[in-house]
Amino acid sequence: MVEPIPLTAEPALAIRDLRVSYGANPVLDGVTASLARGAMTAIIGPNGAGKSTLLKAALGLIPSLGGTALAFGKPVGQALPPIAYVPQRAAVDWDFPARALDVVLMGMYRRTGLLGRIGKAETTAAMECLSRLGMADFATRQIGALSGGQQQRVFLARALAQGAELYLLDEPFAGVDAATEAAIVTLLKSLRDEGRSIVAVHHDLSTVSAYFDRVLLLNRRTIAEGPVATTFRQEAVARTYGNQIATAIPA
């Protein structure tokens, strides 16, 4: 298994007392967590535990009632350039006149800016991002003409093109085919090996140990956080899921 990651000075994502409500129902009831740099962390918890909400609130995509989120020691708003976010399923118009390559190029907006021309260098870089996800052959397909798994890979390639240090992924494996799942895992691990930090909301308890280094067990508040080997244990998972536990987990 993976070596324990030495905690560097600043965690990739430090969340303090984050609180979010939908109407009168608290979804995040003061979540505090410190997610390590250079690691792949899974956010695990039952439905309604606030996993997706945690990512969105940390990014400031939805309003929070209180609390802070620091990325690499800086408020997320200021640290945004090195953060990439891939939603569970992008809510876009799938009929939009954009090819897979055009979508990936959108990830380079900070580099090209308003007027910068998209030249050979940008196109090559975007093609490379698609290649890393095994999508180079589909570069000129219209985005809606791809399968769900392929679309997910394109959006991951767009995140890749952003050149981020921290990747926040909302259920990257939900509803994708086995080939896509394998391609995504390989990519995420190689990003981790390059020293980047990955945080993913994850549903499938049976793959946690194989895919991730660390877990954050969440149910409206932090139940536990730490390396998979020591934290992802029957007792803690049972507390997270309220006893409807999966027996496949080590005691």
């Binding site: 990439a84 992008a90 954009a98 959108m106 907006y109 900070r110 308003l114 952003q162």
Partner: peptide
């Protein structure tokens, strides 16, 4: 001509466009 890229990105995926500083 100046705004075209930002306009396309806003139309395609406003959430992502905002994260890209648009």
């Amino acid at each position: 001509a100046v705004l075209r890229r930002a306009l396309v990105m806003t139309a395609f995926d406003p959430g992502h466009a905002a994260m890209m500083g648009i």
